[in-house]
C-alpha cells in the first residue's frame, strides 16, 4: 500500500514540477511547485522521515514559496512585466540536452547494483534526529545558523534604498 502510494506521489510530483517549469507566469509556477513540494513531503514521510516531511511543508511550501509569492506581489509584476516565456525554438536543443542528461543519470543509477535493492521499513523518531542534530552535528548546526545570520545581514544590505543617481 505504502509502496503504491510512493509511486503515485512520485509521479504526481514530477507532473506538478513539469507543469511548474513550463509556466510563463511565475505565480502559476509557484502554485504548481507548492503542489509538487507537498507530494515530496509525503514521500519523505513514507521514507521514514516525519520531521523532514513536516519541515518540508513548513519551510519550503510555507515559508520559501510564500516568500516568492510575496516578492512577485511586492514588485507588482503586472502581466506585461513578465517577460516572454520560453520560446519554442529554444526547446529543441534544450530538450536534447535535458533528455541526454536524464538518460545518463538514469543509466548511472540503474547500472549500479545497489539500485535493485529494496529499502527496508524505517522510521526515525524526531527525538533521535534531534539528539543527533544537537550532539554529533552541533558544529554544523552552528555554522548553518551563522549562514542564516549572514544571509539576513546580506539581504538587509541589498534591500536598502539605492544611493541617488544609481537608479536605472
Amino acid at each position: 500500500m505504502a509502496t503504491v502510494l510512493f509511486y503515485i506521489l512520485g509521479f504526481t510530483m514530477l507532473a506538478a514540477t513539469l507543469l511548474c517549469i513550463t509556466r510563463r507566469n511565475p505565480v502559476h509556477a509557484v502554485i504548481y511547485l507548492v503542489a509538487g513540494l507537498f507530494a515530496l513531503a509525503l514521500m519523505f514521510y513514507l521514507l521514514g522521515a516525519p520531521l523532514v516531511a513536516a519541515w518540508q511543508v513548513i519551510v519550503y511550501a510555507g515559508a520559501i514559496m510564500v516568500l516568492f509569492l510575496f516578492i512577485i506581489m511586492m514588485l507588482g509584476l503586472a502581466p506585461q512585466d513578465v517577460p516572454e516565456g520560453p520560446s519554442w525554438q529554444r526547446w529543441g536543443p534544450l530538450a536534447l540536452l535535458s533528455s541526454s542528461i536524464m538518460i545518463c543519470t538514469l543509466l548511472l543509477i540503474f547500472k549500479d547494483p545497489m539500485a535493485g535493492q529494496q529499502i527496508d521499513d524505517f522510521y526515525l523518531a524526531p527525538q533521535v534526529l534531534g539528539e543527533a542534530l544537537f550532539s554529533r552535528y552541533a558544529l554544523a548546526v552552528e555554522i548553518v545558523s551563522f549562514q542564516l545570520l549572514f544571509a539576513t545581514i546580506g539581504a538587509y544590505m541589498l534591500g536598502r534604498p539605492l544611493p541617488k543617481g544609481e537608479d536605472q
Binding site: L97, S100, I101, C104, T105, L107, L108, K111
Partner: peptide
C-alpha cells in the same frame, strides 16, 4: 549544463 553532461558521460 553541457559540461555537466560531459561529466556524466565520462562517469557512464
Amino acid at each position: 549544463a553541457w559540461g555537466f553532461l560531459i561529466l556524466l558521460g565520462w562517469f557512464l
